[in-house]
Amino acid sequence: MQRLSSALFLLGLGLLIAAIFRGMEFGTAAPIVGQAINSAAAEQVGAANFVTAVVLGYRGFDTLLELTILFTAATAGGLVLGKRSPTAKRDPDAGFILQAGADLLFPLLVIVGLYIILHGHLTPGGGFQGGVILASAFFIPILARPGTRMSHAAVSTIEGLAGASFIFIGLLAMFGGEAFLTPLMDRGELGALLSAGSLPLLYLAVGLKVGSELAGLLTHLSESEAVD
């Protein structure tokens, strides 16, 4: 009975989507907002990467909320998984090669992650991509030596301060009489490392926040007790 109704529901949705597909005209839409941003972004925001200009400038509010979603998911994940019981079995340590490799990888990944974050306004990449690399930098040692614990206090302090500084930079603009999240400081020369005003700072906050959030989620999952 339930299968039948699900199949009917699926059929209805399928028909709807097929109808949309048939009726759609591809490649005719005019990207009016996109074109306007493409012609104004270099002057208004000063980032050579226009996607970054949209992510942190025009739609910075979305990015703030996205960080909050990750934060909320990590908080809720911690609430769901709870504390690990001290008697629980641990995974066996990884072999020597993986451990040595992890030690070598750690500084490399941190540097690459920070590089990607700090060049986000110039080249592809930025806080999210760099943040993922930072998270893996901190997670790989834990995979190599499951006995070691990540300091949850340090992680939660970093995530709290990074998120708060994003909002604080936004609020600073408000104290200056402008709208929330208005980019601050000099836009500088297009394409230079120190350009685009407060955008690199914002991306640094995003990168640290994403990195600590994801590292927290990963360790929560891996610290939960093994079944077999």
Binding site: G34, Q35, A53, V54, E66
Partner: peptide, 15 residues
């Protein structure tokens, strides 16, 4: 140039 807005949106949606 390609429209940067959907790119930013998809970035958000993936995260």
């Amino acid at each position: 140039m390609a429209d940067p807005v959907p790119q930013a949106l998809v970035l958000t949606a993936i995260v």
